[in-house]
Design a protein around this nucleic acid. Structure first.
Length: 606
DNA sequence: AGACTCACG
DNA sequence: ACGTACGTGAGTCTC
């Protein structure tokens, strides 16, 4: 049973603050009215720095700051100096959330050194879910009070604010105390697995950087998106009309089932060789594309699909996500989701904003800089290929990068033994495809399909590719072997991914795990490098340009909002920082662009 | 809730 | 001979 002291008076609060000031480290946990850190209210904060004991500050109670009784924020001002002191280590579970809640309440959290969610993620990035309740069960072998015990479930659910203070205090204190004990265990596990370095030097320093990016948010021109949406709506109506005329019937174009019925039953378009899903013949774009010449309706459907996707996912959805308080979009950068160490972005996902089509570029124009500012984007050029070349110590590919060559042209030239000047666009395209595909174990079928060449040609291409780049071939072999021997693979910095399927009896399942192994070491190393760069950029940027903001990360790209007259200075700093954080055998190159929006960028020469 | 589709790196 | 592209999040339909 956890001893819980409820802090409900000014005197008790002062005593707690004195105790906290003496600690080397403590767990804290904010309790709020909801899940969105930007709209919720702070109800209380629990603390723990000793097994079996915890405290809960009840902010709904009679705590009063004598200076200003009316401002609720003032209640926790006594805690400010403690929470902002980087020398006192803060532990917690999902601290990015607490960071943001405190920021909303005027406190800039510092000294964040142990997040149990991040620790558990590093120990097994494949798990995807790291909620405290489950971790306490697995690691401590105990059950803690679930939230549902307080607020009920389903229709009878009450709001957190309605829970009696004492019950709520116990609940919160129990979690803080469990987090404290969990942290001790996870720390040992991180040390045993050599993951402590990635934890201390990459993930924990990154956490406040991500929090800051989420807090700052991104400006979008919602009116522009709404204008486009109205235009696209008219286009869609026209296209639908044409499709219905050809089909001689109206149907729901958004329903793959109805579409399949029209195409393959009513119009009797031949479906030989098309991929099949669980419910029937696939109608995905890649498959329909193969039928383009069979019927004029196909092109119209593809056009409809593209426009309708962009309209619903971006043009209509993004304006709804603008925060009325800040006028900006505040995405979540999830630090404990992916199996490889990448970040993910959600609510909304700002890592999949269109870029390929013309309308995609239009969407990006809505990511516009505020007056007096420009958007600056810096991306690692061919980062994964440079990484695989370096990890593999492939002399030929490293040499090509060192010479600053057009890598895809060079690949085509090497593979087919023709001078670079004689490489046809078709050959270069195929080389580009395989250069991308090599990091995830592309086969001949995949290459043939995405490069638009025959299966036979693709097979030959791959064989010659690996006879040219022998180092890469060996690296792939060795990585598969490592995965077999250890049951996991590691990135250059020691981030791990376990691959239990590597021992499967089923060849296809085993092959999949082998591809994952190769991909993890490359994609994961790229993720490590980007994270290290983000930490370095965030640390240096305020000195170079205090008004500049890092607003987005898209795996190999960082996006900034920069005062117009500081573009050159910031471009130089960001490029050099990103290029210098890590030294590989192949050089790392960062390309920088700037413009009035994310959709109209021009390269910056250095 | 799951399937399908498709946007990104 | 076979069946293979890695990692994500979200909108929509269907049950």
């Amino acid at each position: 049973m956890v001893k819980c002291e409820i802090i409900d008076s000014q005197k008790k609060l002062e005593d707690l603050v004195k105790k906290l000031a003496k600690q080397r480290a403590f767990v804290f946990n904010t309790e709020t009215t909801g899940l969105d850190p930007f709209t919720i209210k702070l109800l209380g904060i629990s603390f723990c720095f000793k097994e079996g004991e915890a405290y809960y500050i009840d902010l709904k109670s009679q705590i009063r700051n004598p200076k200003s009784e009316t401002n609720p924020k003032s209640k926790i001002q006594n805690l400010k100096s403690i929470l902002e002191n980087p020398k006192i280590e803060k532990y917690g579970h999902d601290l990015k959330y607490d960071f943001e809640v405190l920021h909303e309440n005027g406190i800039n959290l510092a000294g964040v050194t142990f997040d149990t969610m991040i620790a558990a993620y590093l120990l097994n990035p494949g798990a995807r879910v790291y909620d405290l309740d489950r971790m306490v069960e697995v690691k401590l072998g105990e059950k803690i009070t679930p939230l549902s015990a307080l607020i009920g479930e389903g229709r009878k659910k009450i709001s957190l604010a309605e829970v009696p203070a004492e019950k709520f205090a116990k609940y919160s204190a129990e979690r803080a105390e469990a987090t404290w004990r969990l942290a001790q265990i996870l720390k040992l596990e991180l040390e045993e697995t050599n993951l402590i370095k990635v934890f201390k030097e990459i993930e924990m320093p990154l956490l406040p950087v991500l929090a800051k990016m989420e807090i700052d948010g991104v400006k979008i021109d919602a009116n522009l998106l709404k204008k486009y949406s109205a235009g696209v709506e008219k286009d869609l109506a026209k296209i639908s009309k044409k499709i219905f005329k050809l089909a001689k019937t109206r149907f729901n174009l958004d329903s793959p089932i109805q579409l399949r019925q029209i195409l393959f039953e009513k119009l009797k378009i031949k479906s030989d060789g098309l991929r099949r899903g669980k419910t029937g013949i696939s109608t995905e774009a890649g498959e329909l594309f193969k039928l383009r010449t069979a019927h004029p309706i196909i092109d119209l459907i593809l056009e409809y699909r593209e426009l309708s996707k962009l309209k619903s996912t971006y043009l209509d959805a993004l304006p709804k996500m603008v925060d009325p308080k800040t006028g900006r979009i505040h995405t979540s950068f999830n630090q404990a989701i992916t199996a490889t160490g990448r970040l993910s972005s959600s609510k909304p996902n700002l890592q999949n904003i269109p870029t390929r089509s013309d309308l995609g570029q239009m969407v990006r124009k809505a990511f516009a800089a505020p007056a007096g500012f420009k958007i600056l984007a810096a991306d690692y050029a061919h980062i994964e290929l440079r990484i695989i070349a370096s990890l593999a110590n492939d002399k030929k590919m490293i040499a090509a990068f060192q010479a600053g060559k057009d890598i895809h042209r060079e690949t085509a030239s090497q593979v087919w033994g023709v001078p670079p000047g004689e490489v046809t666009p078709e050959l270069r395209r195929a080389a580009k495809t395989i250069n991308f595909g090599v990091t995830y174990g592309m086969g001949a079928k995949g290459l043939a399909e995405s490069a638009g060449i025959s299966f036979k040609e693709a097979k030959k291409f791959i064989a010659r590719y690996f006879s040219v780049y022998k180092g890469i071939k060996n690296f792939i072999e060795e990585t598969r072997q490592t995965a077999q021997d250890l049951g996991y693979v590691e990135t250059l910095f020691g981030r791990r991914r376990y691959l239990p399927e590597i021992y499967s009896e089923i060849p296809a399942v085993r092959a999949e795990a082998e591809r994952m192994a190769v991909n993890m070491s490359v994609q994961g190393t790229a993720a490590d490098i980007m994270k290290i760069a983000m930490i370095a950029v965030a640390a240096g940027l305020p000195k170079i340009s205090p008004r500049s903001k890092m607003i987005l990360q898209v795996h190999d790209e960082l996006v900034f909002e920069v005062p117009e007259d500081e573009i050159k200075k910031v471009a130089k700093f960001v490029k050099e920082t990103m290029e210098r954080v890590v030294k590989l055998k192949a050089p790392i190159l960062v390309e920088v662009e700037a413009g009035n929006s994310w959709g109209e960028m021009v390269k910056i020469q250095n």
